[in-house]
Simulated assay, not measured.
Amino acid sequence: MTSDPRLARRIEGLLRDVPDFPKPGIVFKDITPLLADADAFAATVSGLAESARAAGGVDLVAGVEARGFLMAGALATELGCGLLPVRKAGKLPPPVKSVRYDLEYGSAEIEVPHDIAPGSRVLLVDDVLATGGTLRAAAQLLTEIGAEVVALAVILELADLHGRDVLADVAPLDALLSV
């Protein structure tokens, strides 16, 4: 599902392209202008919250480091539920569960607290969906610790990279803007 066209246009107008970041050939989608616009940020959070509501509610919002944290905190507040960080390796105290995965421009390792989410219904959120590797790895970790990922939500989907296809068997995916 993709959001209403008015919200999508609003979001698109507030994104900034940064060429050759973090590596040559990559066009980084900067959401900072969106975050700085209070009304647009609130509308974005409300739009993302619809994913959790459509899934029948959630116990936790899991946000992927780092920009996913920003959305997850606001979403958890809006939804009246808890927040679960999905962090880069070495940033959480033990016990943790971790996984290494490939990115479109390298590889990374993420981790989640091992003992927080068993039995929880989780909305997994990030800012941008590219190839789907990060969200897939995060969903794998959440499942391994006993949580149920009931929905995925992103602000922006880079459709040409086919990340949605990689996530088709994980949970329903909502993107507020697809380019």
Rank of each mutant, 00 (worst) to 15 (best):
A171S: 01
A147P: 00
L79F: 07
T131F: 08
P22M: 08
R87I: 01
A38N: 13
D127G: 10
L177G: 00
I11S: 15
S98E: 06
R67N: 07
L156E: 12
G146P: 03
R87W: 03
A49Y: 03
V96G: 09
G57C: 08
A151K: 01
R10F: 00
V58F: 09
E78F: 02
I110P: 03
I116K: 12
L34S: 13
A117L: 06
P94R: 15
S120P: 06
A130L: 01
A151Q: 04
L124W: 00
A137V: 00
I31G: 04
L173R: 02
I110L: 07
D17R: 14
L167M: 04
L7V: 06
V86H: 05
L177Y: 03
I26F: 07
R100P: 04
D4W: 03
R10W: 10
L129V: 04
A54S: 15
R53I: 05
A74M: 04
L14A: 15
K88V: 06
A49I: 08
V179M: 11
R136H: 12
P22G: 12
A108D: 08
L7D: 03
S51C: 09
R67W: 00
Q140K: 01
T2A: 10
A147T: 05
R9M: 09
D4G: 14
A153E: 05
R136E: 05
V45R: 12
V86A: 05
P5E: 13
T32S: 15
D37G: 10
D17C: 01
L129F: 03
L7R: 04
G68L: 09
P172Y: 00
H114W: 12
D127M: 04
L7C: 07
R100G: 04
D174C: 01
F21K: 11
V27S: 14
T134H: 05
D4P: 05
D59M: 09
L15W: 02
A54N: 13
G119P: 10
D39T: 15
V61T: 08
R9S: 13
A52V: 10
L83H: 10
A42T: 10
G47S: 14
V179G: 13
D160V: 14
V128S: 11
I31W: 01
R16D: 00
Q140N: 02
